[in-house]
Design a protein around this nucleic acid. Structure first.
Lengths: 153, 153
DNA sequence: GTTGATTAGTTACAATTGAAACAATTATAG
DNA sequence: CTATAATTGTTTCAATTGTAACTAATCAAC
């Protein structure tokens, strides 16, 4: 019999999961409805826009997606004419990806909406609190990497 | 052409998503390896432990899962003898769920491990910072609910 | 150069998930 | 009562995802 039960609503990883899922769902709904984009597709677009010419592996790194997910997202983006792919000169395994004008249009339509949404989300915090949140998250982000995974008996 | 690109690594919903996914994956790995539990199954166990007798719908509410996911998790827990189900007296649609001794054992094995993990996660913040994080998350949690979803043009 | 190991990316198959339709029971309206 | 609606939970089918195996190209060692 455990002394005090673990209350899910107070358990940090669970709280982050619920909050994050709500946000992701709300956001994904908007660009899915308008452009038929999945979350992985949007993420690929988001990193290609400011860094044209990077490879699929680099996309995977920057989006925290695995290479299979990137491959599938890229294929659909190619099919819809939103991304262009060339083979890298000097290494024919590597691809060079960039947005097409159509892809750029999608990006340009979505960015201001997401900015507004983030803004209205953060409206419940004043400037100092926003700064604190940023610092705290950064700390957690760095720390999680080095953390030993939990091990059961 | 958007004035300044949206940098994914600084976009709050994305940051929360990556952080939360890392945490969930690390945690799920531990109880999956040891007990063959999925995340939904663990969540069902976690809410049944302190609230025996609740219905599937109540489980869904408390875990932020949808009823289909609860149904499937419960079925597997029943199969493994970790949960017991009765029909509610007075409403034969409703089920009454509770952990079996085997289910309770699983719970009791996992809880201290998750506590330790949360503790070592929070070790990168001092007491005041932990308090701040709690307040900020609570504010965001409340706020997100009332927020209009983002709408693209 | 040739062999073996690595790396980039894709494909195939299984497992998970989500949306909609469904059966069974209870509640509501007349 | 009876008909309609609403609720609880399950099932079904399609889409998404994850793991592992795979192809092709490059690198490293000798």
């Amino acid at each position: 019999m455990s002394e005090s039960p673990l209350v899910l609503e107070k358990f940090l990883p669970y709280r982050l999961s619920v909050l994050s899922n709500r946000l992701s769902a709300a956001i994904a709904e908007s660009y899915s409805r308008r452009f038929g984009l999945s979350i992985p597709e949007w993420r690929v677009i988001a990193v290609l826009a400011p860094a044209p010419g990077i490879s699929a592996a680099e996309v995977a790194e920057r989006t925290a997606m695995d290479k299979v997910a990137v491959s599938r997202a890229v294929r659909r983006l190619l099919q819809h004419g939103r991304v262009r792919r060339e083979t890298a000169a000097g290494d024919r395994r590597r691809s060079m990806l960039e947005l097409t004008p159509a892809g750029r249009e999608v990006y340009d339509s979505i960015v201001p909406v997401l900015r507004r949404y983030e803004h209205s989300l953060l409206a419940c915090l004043d400037a100092r609190e926003q700064e604190r949140l940023d610092v705290l998250l950064q700390r957690l982000e760095n720390h999680v990497q080095r953390l030993d995974p939990p091990r059961i008996a």
